[in-house]
Protein backbone atom coordinates (compact mmCIF):
# COMPACT_ATOMS: atom_id res chain seq x y z
CA UNK A 1 0.00 0.00 0.00
CA UNK A 2 2.86 2.34 0.84
CA UNK A 3 4.20 1.91 -2.67
CA UNK A 4 0.93 3.15 -4.22
CA UNK A 5 1.33 6.26 -6.34
CA UNK A 6 0.20 9.26 -4.24
CA UNK A 7 -1.92 10.56 -7.10
CA UNK A 8 -3.79 7.25 -7.36
CA UNK A 9 -4.17 7.07 -3.60
CA UNK A 10 -5.64 10.56 -3.45
CA UNK A 11 -7.97 9.84 -6.36
CA UNK A 12 -9.25 6.68 -4.64
CA UNK A 13 -9.71 8.58 -1.38
CA UNK A 14 -11.68 11.33 -3.13
CA UNK A 15 -13.94 8.80 -4.81
CA UNK A 16 -14.57 6.92 -1.56
CA UNK A 17 -15.32 10.07 0.46
CA UNK A 18 -17.45 11.75 -2.20
CA UNK A 19 -19.80 8.72 -2.20
CA UNK A 20 -20.62 9.02 1.54
CA UNK A 21 -24.33 9.72 1.94
CA UNK A 22 -25.86 12.25 4.29
CA UNK A 23 -27.52 10.23 7.09
CA UNK A 24 -30.57 12.54 7.12
CA UNK A 25 -30.82 12.87 3.33
CA UNK A 26 -29.75 9.47 1.98
CA UNK A 27 -30.56 10.53 -1.57
CA UNK A 28 -27.64 12.92 -1.49
CA UNK A 29 -23.93 12.52 -0.91
CA UNK A 30 -21.87 14.86 1.22
CA UNK A 31 -20.27 16.06 -2.03
CA UNK A 32 -23.72 16.89 -3.48
CA UNK A 33 -24.55 18.93 -0.38
CA UNK A 34 -21.29 20.86 -0.31
CA UNK A 35 -20.50 19.49 3.17
CA UNK A 36 -17.29 17.99 1.78
CA UNK A 37 -14.70 20.71 1.41
CA UNK A 38 -11.41 18.96 0.68
CA UNK A 39 -9.56 15.65 0.59
CA UNK A 40 -5.77 15.78 0.84
CA UNK A 41 -2.82 13.53 1.58
CA UNK A 42 -0.26 14.40 4.23
CA UNK A 43 2.63 11.98 4.65
CA UNK A 44 0.43 9.29 3.15
CA UNK A 45 -2.45 9.93 5.57
CA UNK A 46 -5.81 10.97 4.15
CA UNK A 47 -7.16 14.23 5.62
CA UNK A 48 -10.77 15.16 4.99
CA UNK A 49 -12.24 18.61 5.63
CA UNK A 50 -15.99 18.99 6.12
CA UNK A 51 -18.24 21.91 7.08
CA UNK A 52 -21.59 21.82 8.90
CA UNK A 53 -24.80 23.05 7.28
CA UNK A 54 -26.09 24.32 10.64
CA UNK A 55 -23.86 24.68 13.72
CA UNK A 56 -26.13 22.34 15.68
CA UNK A 57 -26.39 19.71 12.94
CA UNK A 58 -26.47 16.42 14.84
CA UNK A 59 -25.44 14.46 11.73
CA UNK A 60 -21.88 15.83 11.74
CA UNK A 61 -20.50 13.17 14.08
CA UNK A 62 -22.13 10.40 12.06
CA UNK A 63 -20.81 11.88 8.81
CA UNK A 64 -17.29 11.89 10.30
CA UNK A 65 -17.59 8.22 11.30
CA UNK A 66 -18.95 7.28 7.89
CA UNK A 67 -16.05 9.02 6.15
CA UNK A 68 -13.59 7.10 8.33
CA UNK A 69 -15.44 3.84 7.64
CA UNK A 70 -15.52 4.46 3.87
CA UNK A 71 -11.78 5.07 3.84
CA UNK A 72 -11.17 2.00 5.99
CA UNK A 73 -13.17 -0.13 3.54
CA UNK A 74 -11.06 1.25 0.68
CA UNK A 75 -7.90 0.33 2.60
CA UNK A 76 -7.05 4.00 3.05
CA UNK A 77 -7.55 4.40 6.81
CA UNK A 78 -6.98 5.59 9.41
CA UNK A 79 -7.94 9.05 8.22
CA UNK A 80 -8.20 12.42 9.90
CA UNK A 81 -11.53 14.27 9.61
CA UNK A 82 -11.50 17.99 10.33
CA UNK A 83 -14.41 20.41 10.61
CA UNK A 84 -14.14 24.01 9.45
CA UNK A 85 -16.72 26.81 9.72
CA UNK A 86 -15.38 29.32 7.20
CA UNK A 87 -16.42 30.08 4.61
CA UNK A 88 -19.88 29.45 6.03
CA UNK A 89 -21.91 26.80 4.23
CA UNK A 90 -24.80 28.09 2.17
CA UNK A 91 -27.56 26.49 0.14
CA UNK A 92 -25.84 28.17 -2.81
CA UNK A 93 -23.42 25.20 -2.53
CA UNK A 94 -26.20 22.96 -3.92
CA UNK A 95 -25.71 22.45 -7.64
CA UNK A 96 -28.38 21.57 -10.21
CA UNK A 97 -27.81 17.82 -9.67
CA UNK A 98 -28.27 18.13 -5.93
CA UNK A 99 -31.44 20.18 -6.39
CA UNK A 100 -32.86 17.56 -8.78
CA UNK A 101 -32.03 14.75 -6.34
CA UNK A 102 -33.75 16.61 -3.48
CA UNK A 103 -36.89 17.14 -5.55
CA UNK A 104 -36.86 13.46 -6.57
CA UNK A 105 -36.69 12.53 -2.88
CA UNK A 106 -39.81 14.63 -2.17
CA UNK A 107 -37.94 17.57 -0.63
CA UNK A 108 -38.43 20.96 -2.26
CA UNK A 109 -35.00 22.38 -3.10
CA UNK A 110 -33.93 25.75 -1.68
CA UNK A 111 -34.38 28.94 -3.69
CA UNK A 112 -31.83 29.49 -6.44
CA UNK A 113 -28.43 30.94 -5.54
CA UNK A 114 -28.57 34.62 -4.77
CA UNK A 115 -31.79 34.38 -2.75
CA UNK A 116 -31.76 36.11 0.62
CA UNK A 117 -30.03 33.83 3.12
CA UNK A 118 -31.96 33.05 6.28
CA UNK A 119 -35.05 34.38 4.53
CA UNK A 120 -38.52 33.53 5.73
CA UNK A 121 -39.70 30.21 4.30
CA UNK A 122 -42.86 31.94 3.04
CA UNK A 123 -41.68 32.01 -0.56
CA UNK A 124 -44.07 29.06 -1.08
CA UNK A 125 -41.85 26.43 -2.67
CA UNK A 126 -43.47 24.42 -5.45
CA UNK A 127 -44.86 21.04 -4.38
CA UNK A 128 -42.21 18.39 -5.15
CA UNK A 129 -44.99 15.84 -5.87
CA UNK A 130 -47.42 17.64 -8.17
CA UNK A 131 -45.41 20.81 -8.95
CA UNK A 132 -48.29 23.06 -7.85
CA UNK A 133 -47.21 26.52 -6.74
CA UNK A 134 -50.17 26.70 -4.32
CA UNK A 135 -48.45 25.63 -1.11
CA UNK A 136 -48.57 26.79 2.49
CA UNK A 137 -46.11 26.85 5.37
CA UNK A 138 -46.94 24.45 8.22
CA UNK A 139 -43.85 25.03 10.34
CA UNK A 140 -40.71 27.10 9.90
CA UNK A 141 -38.81 24.27 11.61
CA UNK A 142 -38.78 20.68 10.41
CA UNK A 143 -37.33 17.34 11.46
CA UNK A 144 -33.78 18.58 10.82
CA UNK A 145 -32.23 22.03 11.13
CA UNK A 146 -32.00 22.49 7.39
CA UNK A 147 -35.68 21.93 6.52
CA UNK A 148 -39.10 23.56 6.97
CA UNK A 149 -42.49 21.88 6.72
CA UNK A 150 -45.12 22.74 4.08
CA UNK A 151 -48.37 21.45 2.57
CA UNK A 152 -49.63 21.50 -0.99
CA UNK A 153 -53.08 23.08 -1.34
CA UNK A 154 -53.78 21.05 -4.48
CA UNK A 155 -52.62 17.49 -3.80
CA UNK A 156 -52.92 18.12 -0.02
CA UNK A 157 -49.67 16.25 0.66
CA UNK A 158 -47.33 17.64 3.33
CA UNK A 159 -43.73 17.97 2.25
CA UNK A 160 -40.39 19.24 3.48
CA UNK A 161 -38.41 22.05 1.90
CA UNK A 162 -34.74 22.90 2.21
CA UNK A 163 -34.47 26.30 3.90
CA UNK A 164 -32.55 29.09 2.16
CA UNK A 165 -29.40 29.44 4.25
Amino acid sequence: MVSEDPGDRLARARTAVAAVEDPELPALTIADLGILRDVTLRDGRVEVTITPTYTGCTAMAVIGWEIEAALDRAGLGPALVRTVLAPAWSTDALGPDARAKLAAAGIAPPPAPGAVQGAAPDAAPACPRCASARTELLSAFGATGCKSLHRCRDCREPFEAFKAH
Binding site: T55, G56, F141, G145
Partner: peptide, 16 residues
Protein backbone atom coordinates in the same frame (compact mmCIF):
# COMPACT_ATOMS: atom_id res chain seq x y z
CA UNK B 1 -44.65 22.26 15.51
CA UNK B 2 -43.46 24.53 18.30
CA UNK B 3 -41.85 21.62 20.10
CA UNK B 4 -39.79 21.03 16.95
CA UNK B 5 -39.06 24.73 16.59
CA UNK B 6 -37.82 25.16 20.18
CA UNK B 7 -35.72 22.00 19.91
CA UNK B 8 -34.23 23.32 16.65
CA UNK B 9 -33.44 26.65 18.30
CA UNK B 10 -31.85 24.80 21.22
CA UNK B 11 -29.71 22.71 18.86
CA UNK B 12 -28.49 25.79 17.02
CA UNK B 13 -27.53 27.43 20.32
CA UNK B 14 -25.74 24.35 21.65
CA UNK B 15 -23.94 23.96 18.32
CA UNK B 16 -22.86 27.58 18.56
Amino acid sequence: EEDLALANLALDQIGL
